[in-house]
Amino acid sequence: MNINELAVGKNALIERYRSNTVFSERLMELGLTPGTRITLVRRAPFSGPIEIAYGHLRLALRPAEGDGIYILPV
């Protein structure tokens, strides 16, 4: 299951990234390493960006990239 399939307000653990890209490396540098617990905070309307929170951090990314982030719901 990928991060786009998570409902707003629900928690999950990062499982792995579909492929090893510059983008997935940046997400890991920001602390989104496998095993990190995240919350899907909100989605912007009209398939806009999604906001995720983990620890004390929040960041936004586009659903297109979210497809490549696999999660385990908790």
Partner: peptide
């Protein structure tokens, strides 16, 4: 489309 990633500071 290129990745968009932005941090939300407090």
């Amino acid at each position: 489309q290129t990745p968009f990633l932005i941090e939300f500071p407090p």
